[in-house]
Every structure is written in structure tokens, then in C-alpha cells.
Design a protein around this nucleic acid. Structure first.
Lengths: 335, 335
DNA sequence: CGCTCCGATGTAATCGAAATCATCGATAAC
DNA sequence: GTTATCGATGATTTCGATTACATCGGAGCG
């Protein structure tokens, strides 16, 4: 591949002029610019990224780590991230951490090696080396979080009000007349789960149904939805409604309901969370809490770009609107 | 961030020694090595990626472009890619092209700028600049394709035998006694669709049912599944079985079937393609053609690494095994 | 007419690590 | 005892672009 030297020689100018043709075309005479561009086309020149990056100390890349890309919720968020990043001239480096700390560390090291200008993490953990970095540099550290919000982590974040959203989902079920409700959470280490659980609990208390609330701890996977819902349904005093903290677990819940010869929503009402693309095509169509997935992606990139541009002085915490979407998987309990 | 110079000064050695501690630890005395490592830890040094990459002309990155990451089929393939890449010390740069040529070109330019050592494209188009590169450098060009195989494109590729797979799916339907079968394809510009269609046609002919075959052209999306299946069902002489070229379209087909008050598989049998994670949790559980998604990812990375290591002289075309998975969405037609 | 200023371009330092070549002391070989 | 050899390390060049600074010719001004 041709270098800037080759182009300069071919066009009969200095390398500085070639460089200017790309970064500040206004500074170079049109005739010269044309000569340079001809040489560029003739030689098929593309500026070498590593050289540029070394000199400018910028990569124009954003590293995004996600616990699981094959999860439709995250892949939608990532789409939003990618869209906003590309619009700002950044590209996306994707890291699937598979919920494994080792991989999180690996990507943290990449970030420290300056393979990306900024980091967006969609999980709930921040490796120590990066936490140290945040502690040292404060809110100007180009690290932001999406979806999970933990006050202890001093990074900006975009997310919904998980507690309130969960409470609304429970209100919907109690409003339909359900009294025995089962909840299938994700791992409680993540704020996303603990916040939602807090919301569910407070709603249960408000409705005087706290003692009838059953809680099972899943891991957001379909399989755990099958398993945990199964356990809830097999207990004496079977719940008439189940609230899963992800749509995938709700898909599993549907399976568990069917396996027992029960029907949704006639025997058991079901509420999911996320409103993934498939939720409305399930049978019955799934009542769920919709998160503005792509918008979370946009916001998170916006905050990061603010930091990178030096426009930020304080942490930002953006709470985006959620919406309970009532479809046909919820109904009043059989009397 | 500390540089190699800082470490060298701190440890009282030259930069060359520090560099060797990382790239060839055996060459440096243990005592020296320890002194260097202490300095590294004390200063929190990480080698700067751009500098390393400039000097070695390698990035240890693989660029993967995909038409749509939010598609569970692709996200599984990507998982496989990521896993194999990481195991070999490479990281993945993800490009979601959204089926748009402009974005494909954008990522092609990134590749030419040497932002990645190799390119894996999961779509069916290769931008001109890259096709030129392939034409010039032949099979040693570090570009490989996954899923789609077009003989004209002189790049290595890993994929299933789409034609045969589709034929088997049709055989299954004809074997159950169906005579009027409808097929919902993807865009015919992609080999993935045209090959499957060829397989479906040949099976229909073999069974003497070519004249009763109905074809609708979708775009792999759920919505197009609803629409195209709807059209097939509304024609006179309604098909008793539908074969969709993706599971997502099959989800849409289920919806179209239900909208018309019909039942699957009693009134209409349904076969999908891909065996995405959700296929077995639909109701009814979806009969579908399973592709070895992660394995495709692994193979494609293996081929690329072969090229990068100079082990390759000729094109490779790997055909991986598919499997028809019969679940409960197919049954004999109502007599 | 001489001086300043400006626009266009060139010269050269610089970014941080890798790699080649040089150095030096010690050991082994003859 | 002299010399080739080797192991450990240092000095220096190099990768390819950006950019601060230098240069130079011409326009504008007094």
C-alpha cells in the first residue's frame, strides 16, 4: 500500500501538503489539491491508521463491552450505539464479555493500551484498573455506562428507572386482580435486577400482598425462565401471575406454563421486560416493559462524546422513559 | 499514561530491554526482568497500541461486517468468530452494514487503512475496492466470507449446502403428504436465497409438485414473513405448508396463520431456517434447518488466520453440515 | 522603494514501540 | 594465551502520518 511519501513524490509536493489536502483542504491551492488527489487515486492511497493514531493520540474508536451480544436487548442497544458513533465519525469495537470477568479485564487492557478513545460498558462491573482510572481522573474519564446504574461507580450512565418500571408492571397485575404473584429476577449482583426487585417489593407492599409474593432468582436466560417459573408454579398456592425481568425468561416461562398444561393468560398471566423485537410475535403476545433501547445507545454515545470533546465537568445520569406495553399475556385471574 | 521510556528510566535499563521483557522474555535475565516488571506495575504501563501497530504493521484485529447484528442468526455466528479470534489473540471490530452499500464501503475503507489485519464479511456483497484487492493479490488476500458462497467472488468461504438443505426441508413436507407448498424466500440477490430456492424447486420437481409450488419474496424480517405468508394463504388453493428461509420470517408466518384463524400445524405446517435460539420456544416449536452457527464463525476465523500466517496458497471452500430439526410445527395435512 | 504581512508550501521534529546492529564481558575452544 | 562465541544489554533507526516552525514570493502600505 502506498504511503504519504509515495503520494508526495508522485504529485511533486511535500508530505505536509498531502496531509493538508486531507485535514485542511482550504489551506492548499486548488490546482495543487487536484494534483495531489490524482496521485492519491492513481496509487490507491489510504492514510495508515496506526501512524495517524500514534501522532494524534486518538483512534476514533469506541469500545463497547456487552455481557452477551446474542441477547436481542443488547444487540438493539448496540445498534443505537453504532448509529450514533458512526454519525460522529467513530467506529465501534465490540467486546462480548459473556459475563466473564476475565474477558472484561481483557477489554479493559485494550482500552488502557489506547485501542479506543472511549469505553461504553453495558454490564454492571467495571474492572479494577478502570475503576482506578475513574478515581484518578474523575468525571472526565471517557468511560460511561449503559443500562445499569450504580451510584457507587462514579461514571455517567443512561438507563431507565428500573424500580419504577417494575413497580408499574406489578401495579398492572394487582390492578387486574391478581393476588399471588411470582417474580423471576436476574442475578441480584446487578443493579438492574436489584432495582427491579425493590420496585416489585414496594408495589407488593403497597397493595398489601407482600406476604404472597414469591421470588425466584434466574439469570436472564430462556432456560432459567423455564426452570424458575416451573418452580414457582409447582409450589402450593400457585401464583396466578408471573413477572420475569427479561423477555427471554418470559419466553421460558411460557414454555413452563405450557409444560404443565396451563394456559397463558387464562391460568397464569405473564409480564416480561425489555420489549425485544420478538415479544409481540409470541403467542400470546407478551405484555412487557419497553425500554428505549436504541435511544439508550444514542445517549450513552452522546455523553461519551461530550467527555471526549472536553465539554463535560460533572457526571451525567440520564433516566430515559420506559413504557408498560399491555398485550395479551395478561388478563384478570380466573375467578 | 506511562511510556516505554518512563519504564526504562525507572528500571534503569534501555527501552529495548523493556520491549524484550514483553515480546521475548527468555532473552532477558530474570533479575532484570523483575526490575522491569516492578517498574511496569509501579507506573501502570501498558504498551501503546498505535506505536506497536505502526512498527509491526499489524493490528491483531479482525473486522467483521454483518448485515444486521440484531438478527440472532448473525449474532450467534459472531459469537463463534469472537471466540475463535480471542483464542488466537485477535479482537473483533464489528461493522453492522444494515444492508446498506454506503456502510459496506465505509468499512472497506477502514480495512484499507489497515485498521484490521483481516476482514470477514457475512453478507453477500464485497465493495469494489476490496474486489480489486482480491483480484490483485489472489487467495492470499486476508478476506473471507461466511454463510454466503458465490463462486464468482474469489474469496474463501464457510457455509452450509443451502441448496441441499432446502431440498431436505421440502422433502420433509412432501413426505408428510403435503402437495401445495408455499415458499417465502429472502432477497434473491443473495446466493443464500437463490441456492435455497433452487433446492426447493428441484425437490418440488422431483415430487411432481412444481406446478403447485407458490413463491413469495421476503427480506428475512419478521414483518415480511407476516406479509408474504399472508399473501400465500389468501390465494385460492391455499398451501397446506409454508417454508420460510429464516426463522424470523417463520415467526411472522405463525402470526399470519393465527390472524386468519388457522392453526399450525393442523391447518398449515411450517418450516423455518437457521434454528435460532428462540425456535424451540415458539408455540408450536418450530421445525427448522439448523446451521452450525458458531462453527461457521470458527471456520471462517481459521481460514483467515491461515491466510494471515501465510499458510494458504489456494482458496478454501468449507461446507459445514446442516440438520433438519423436526419439531411440532409440521404434521401431515388435514385429509 | 523598502518593509511588513500573508498565503502557499516545505523542512523537520515528533508520537511510542520494535527491531537491527553494536557493544561488552565472560566462557569455551584450540 | 589468544580468539571465536555467546548471552545480555544498549544505541539507534524505523514505521507513516501530523504539525510547529521556517521559507519564499507577492501584495499592500507609507
Amino acid at each position: 500500500m502506498a504511503t504519504i511519501q509515495d503520494v508526495a513524490r508522485d504529485a511533486g509536493v511535500s508530505t505536509a501538503t498531502v496531509s493538508r489536502v486531507f485535514s485542511a483542504p482550504g489551506l492548499v491551492l486548488e490546482a495543487t489539491r487536484n494534483r495531489v488527489m490524482e496521485a492519491v487515486n492513481r496509487l490507491g492511497y489510504e492514510p495508515n491508521f496506526a501512524a495517524k493514531s500514534l501522532r494524534t493520540l486518538r483512534t476514533e474508536k469506541i469500545l463497547v463491552t456487552v455481557p452477551d451480544i446474542s441477547n436481542p436487548f443488547f444487540s438493539q442497544v448496540i445498534r443505537g450505539v453504532e448509529e450514533a458513533a458512526l454519525a460522529a465519525g467513530y467506529s465501534v469495537l465490540l467486546g462480548d464479555t459473556r459475563h466473564e470477568e476475565a474477558r472484561e479485564e481483557q477489554y479493559a487492557a485494550m482500552f488502557r493500551r489506547k485501542e479506543a478513545d472511549g469505553l461504553i460498558f453495558l454490564g454492571h462491573r467495571l474492572p479494577d484498573v478502570l475503576a482506578d482510572m475513574v478515581a484518578a481522573k474523575g468525571p472526565k474519564t471517557p468511560i460511561v455506562n449503559g443500562c445499569e446504574f450504580r451510584p457507587g461507580l462514579a461514571v455517567s450512565s443512561a438507563h431507565i428507572d428500573n424500580e419504577r418500571a417494575a413497580a408499574e408492571a406489578m401495579d398492572h397485575l394487582y390492578g387486574l386482580g391478581h393476588t399471588r404473584v411470582g417474580v423471576v429476577t436476574g442475578p441480584l449482583a446487578s443493579p438492574i435486577s436489584s432495582d427491579r426487585l425493590a420496585g416489585a417489593l414496594s408495589a407488593a407492599q403497597r397493595h398489601g400482598r407482600a406476604s404472597a409474593l414469591r421470588i425466584a432468582i434466574g439469570d436472564f436466560s430462556i432456560e432459567s425462565g423455564v426452570r424458575q417459573t416451573g418452580e414457582l408454579l409447582d409450589e402450593p398456592g400457585r401464583p396466578t401471575a408471573i413477572f420475569c425481568f427479561s423477555d427471554e425468561m418470559a419466553m421460558g416461562a411460557l414454555e413452563a406454563i405450557r409444560q404443565r398444561g396451563l394456559t397463558c393468560p387464562d391460568d397464569v398471566s405473564l409480564v416480561g421486560f425489555d420489549d425485544i423485537r420478538f415479544a409481540q410475535y409470541l403467542h400470546p403476545q407478551l405484555t412487557t416493559v419497553s425500554q428505549p433501547k436504541e435511544q439508550i445507545g444514542h445517549e450513552v454515545v452522546r455523553m461519551l462524546l461530550d467527555i471526549l470533546a472536553g465539554r463535560t465537568t460533572a457526571l451525567q445520569n440520564v433516566t430515559l422513559p420506559h413504557r408498560l406495553i399491555v398485550r395479551s399475556s395478561t388478563a384478570p385471574p380466573r375467578s
